[in-house]
Design a protein around this nucleic acid. Structure first.
Lengths: 198, 198
DNA sequence: GTTACTCGGTTAAAAAAGCAACTCGGTTAT
DNA sequence: ATAACCGAGTTGCTTTTTTAACCGAGTAAC
């Protein structure tokens, strides 16, 4: 089912990772606006056009990690067994994310992850662009949920509570608590939030 | 003074080194004939045509280290100060090589270097091709020494004694002695050989 | 108020690399 | 003996990358 992993594909993936990694580490070190794309290209030992062939904008160098989760909610809904409702499927999926301390749930205390979140949310252009991603995600989820305004509303609500939950988790960890410590509350919060939707 | 070191040139040099290094280490590990160029290409993560774009033949993967010294004798003669004879210049150059334990003098006991020499001299196709390199070297030296048969004879003699000296040094080291131990004899042998030429 | 930077992003042409399929000589199997 | 295979190189075509030059917006200098 996975890609045939030719030489070309392998190198491409590696280059992509190398670019993003050096970019993020430079950003964490000096701040998003204090690093030019030229710096990144030089540090990653590639040319500027190559950089933009891999990532459409400077922001995407950071946000591709979210982009990789693009459409995940929609997929979860589409792939659910016919016996479960969309909300239940999303609820379970979010709980599973919490259980494996998935960074997107905000429940992760690895210093790198924390610093990364800080970078994203304290840099206006990044936070701004992130909402655009979330909008696309929302549309996809809406399509998966059905037609009309009802589907759109439900999609918006689901993603809104996910954002709130993630933000709450991240805040507690930013306050110095460990992910393992926060985990039960996070589960409880998630249950409460999703149950309100039904 | 050095090459302008663009991105292209840097990567090219690195790829070249990477290919040669993986090739030699595979050869040392399993023997020259037990490693196919496909193996090398796979291990170096490049395609076969790319390998042959960097090295014309399989043998050159090993011998490029000698090729890099190509024309060195001729250069030494050409670059000598006008006050010194060609033979003296070559003599001094060889002594300098001994002093820094240059692998081409045979006076080097690093295990890798010894193993490398063993690989070259015990693999027929490699030893064979090496003589071709030496021939070109000889021609270049002859041209630097002047015209006619005299120059060619002198060139052949100089390179012949260098080969003999290197071989003698290598033999002593292959017998288990250290380079530092052999060094005085190597100097004496070189002096004797070059003085006979004058 | 031009001038001259810098920075994000693009373009066109040329070099380099990948891929697949091939030649050609030599072994091995049948 | 002939077919099948393997290994060193090659060839033609496509994809990727470099290079240098550019655009357009912002901004600092004078």
């Amino acid at each position: 089912m996975n890609e045939p992993t030719g030489l070309r594909a392998r190198k491409k993936a590696r280059t992509r990772d190398a670019i993003a990694d050096t970019a993020v580490s430079l950003f964490l070190e000096r701040g998003f606006d204090r690093v030019s794309v030229n710096d990144i290209a030089a540090a990653a030992e590639i040319s500027k056009p190559t950089l933009f062939r891999y990532f459409p904008t400077k922001e995407d160098l950071v946000l591709h990690r979210f982009a990789d989760h693009q459409g995940e909610a929609a997929r979860v809904v589409r792939d659910r067994s016919s016996a479960t409702t969309p909300v239940t499927a999303l609820h379970r999926h979010f709980r599973a994310g919490l259980d494996r301390y998935d960074p997107v749930t905000g429940l992760n205390d690895h210093p790198q992850v924390v610093a990364f979140h800080r970078l994203v949310f304290t840099t206006p252009s990044l936070a701004g662009r992130l909402t655009r991603y979330q909008l696309e995600d929302e549309e996809a989820l809406a399509d998966a949920l059905g037609e009309g305004i009802q589907a759109r509303l439900r999609a918006a609500q689901v993603l809104a509570i996910q954002r709130v939950l993630a933000r709450a988790n991240w805040q507690k960890i930013a306050d110095g608590r460990t992910a393992r410590d926060v985990h039960p509350e996070a589960l409880a919060d998630a249950d409460q939030a999703f149950n309100q939707l039904r």
